[in-house]
């Protein structure tokens, strides 16, 4: 009971801090929605006819930008926030209190995962109502499982990268350098079908592409990829394990001196 109460308090605090930090809130919340709106305005009205029914391309952007939103809320958010808190001595301060580490970390994870889910709901809402995206073919339970697995994978990777980031000044550069190129080569903004094989192969090593593809596949059958869902899940689970091990092994309470 006491642990749950502490978790609730700490979660509420993570929330307050996030929303009051308007810059972080803008980049995490507004950016994926804005990106989806731009892409939908540019290409969303094009359509493919399936069994006599038109399917708008906006149907592709909803799950794709959902992947970006979850990565932003979980990976980018946690990697930046943890490295900045560590540099400012906030983590060390926590360590001197009776608040258990597990609750400190869990509150951050719950905050990130809930935020990611809220963003996905927003993206689906905007996509469907504004840009006529189709949700008729959604495999809801698989889509949700993929979201959950993706969220915890990118949270673990965020913690891992935070552990490897030398200091807070370096964190935006490092985090963006990891995220942006991967988003571009991972079927998020545009399909990679015509990309060179080696580039596709590189993208397939990392979790972003698998996450995007599995969200697309489960969102609408027309977006189903050639690779089987189980392979996507396996690669993501493997990255989750790597992230977890690195995060636990290299976690630091204090900045490196």
């Amino acid at each position: 009971m006491r642990s749950l109460q502490l978790l609730a308090i700490q979660y509420a605090y993570e929330n307050v801090r996030f929303w009051r930090n308007s810059i972080a809130a803008f980049f995490t919340v507004a950016l994926p929605i804005l990106m989806m709106m731009i892409l939908c305005l540019l290409f969303g009205s094009q359509q493919t006819v399936v069994e006599g029914q038109p399917v708008y391309w906006s149907t592709f952007y909803v799950p794709s930008l959902s992947a970006m939103a979850v990565i932003g809320a979980c990976f980018t958010n946690i990697a930046m926030e943890v490295s900045i808190s560590r540099d400012r001595g906030l983590l060390k301060r926590y360590r001197g209190t009776p608040l258990p580490v597990s609750i400190l970390v869990c509150a951050k994870l719950v905050h990130a995962v809930v935020l990611g889910f809220l963003l996905v709901i927003c993206l689906i809402g905007v996509g469907v109502w504004v840009f006529d995206a189709s949700v008729n073919g959604i495999q809801l339970s698989l889509f949700v499982v993929a979201l959950i697995l993706g969220s915890i994978t990118f949270c673990a990777l965020g913690l891992a990268v935070a552990a490897l980031i030398p200091n807070a000044e370096a964190s935006p550069a490092i985090v963006q350098a990891v995220v942006l190129p991967l988003l571009f080569i991972s079927d998020v903004f545009l399909p990679m079908d015509n990309a060179p094989a080696w580039l596709q192969w590189i993208a397939s090593v990392f979790p972003v592409r698998h996450f995007a593809l599995i969200l697309q596949s489960t969102f609408h059958p027309i977006l189903a990829s050639d690779i089987r869902v189980s392979i996507h899940l396996f690669v993501m689970a493997a990255w989750f394990a790597v992230g977890l091990v690195v995060a636990i092994r290299y976690f630091r309470w204090e900045p490196r001196r």
């Binding site: 308090i9 930090n21 400012r88 001595g89 906030l90 060390k92 209190t97 009776p98 608040l99």
Partner: peptide, 23 residues
């Protein structure tokens, strides 16, 4: 501690309340 910052997005009272809740 000798050198730590406090959470910049919480007021004095909110910071103290948060720490109090840990004990």
């Amino acid at each position: 501690l000798q050198e730590t910052e406090v959470e910049e997005f919480l007021s004095v009272e909110e910071s103290i309340r948060l720490v109090r809740s840990y004990y």
